[in-house]
Design a protein around this nucleic acid. Structure first.
Lengths: 121, 121
DNA sequence: CCAGCGTATCGACAGGCATCGAAGCAAGGA
DNA sequence: TCCTTGCTTCGATGCCTGTCGATACGCTGG
């Protein structure tokens, strides 16, 4: 299947600038909004995924090769599984360059999360 | 077990002001930090819990009676189960006042999340 | 003291998910 | 052409969790 499968990004609208959901403190969440936000939080609700995400996010340029981040204490297939989950949640994008596959932090993801938390400073 | 069981708040230190973990983009997360953050995100990774939390957070004073928020489409025991999860995650506190039980958003929770997201405004 | 209401816990069940080894696919070098 | 290396997918397994009905607990009013 590779990368052609777009899973209709849960947390970001097409532009990537407008958050999907109103702030969590702005009123009662609709069922649909709650499900979108839950999907995003669920993607970050695993320690392994959190460590993978932070390793990528803290790399220069917000991107890293799998081989650079695979050391998180679980087997290599499991790492691949978690990266796929993060990709499906719209938090990461992936790109093959020759032998290696690079993962990048999807743009505006952090801003979308900030909007959910009502942190328009 | 009842409520005397304190689950050593995952995301907030004793004072409640200092976040537990470095920003997610500041470098590689330690195993311990990743587990604390994951526990918090996991608490918010369910649509029902998200709706309950937002209902409480959007109530005046950041507090609400269970009877005011219980209409989220699941049975009463399930609502109670989810509120317990949010309490154990340190996101909510509860207090009995006469017949009713009131839940409040734990102070500084949102600030702690903001710190994780590297949003030092 | 008892009946009634609001909330929490219990026990059970089904579905979801993290994990692994094995196998498959892609790219590059001998 | 084959082998090696990097990554993904597959199938199986065991644990975790969301859900419910039944039941227990706490409080208030009669």
């Amino acid at each position: 299947m590779s990368k052609s499968e777009v899973v209709e990004l849960p947390v970001l609208q097409d532009g990537g600038v407008v958050p999907c959901c109103p702030p969590i403190t702005a009123g009662e969440l609709s069922q649909a909004d709650a499900e979108k936000m839950a999907a995003m939080f669920k993607a970050l609700s695993d320690p392994v995924r959190l460590r993978l995400f932070s390793k990528i996010a803290s790399h220069p340029g917000g991107e890293a090769c799998v081989c650079d981040i695979a050391d998180v204490g679980v087997s290599q297939p499991t790492v691949s599984h978690h990266l796929k989950k993060l990709r499906e949640a719209g938090l990461l994008t992936s790109e093959r360059r020759g032998t290696w596959v690079y993962y990048q932090v999807a743009p505006s993801v952090v801003a979308a999360m900030a909007a959910m938390l009502d942190l328009r400073s």
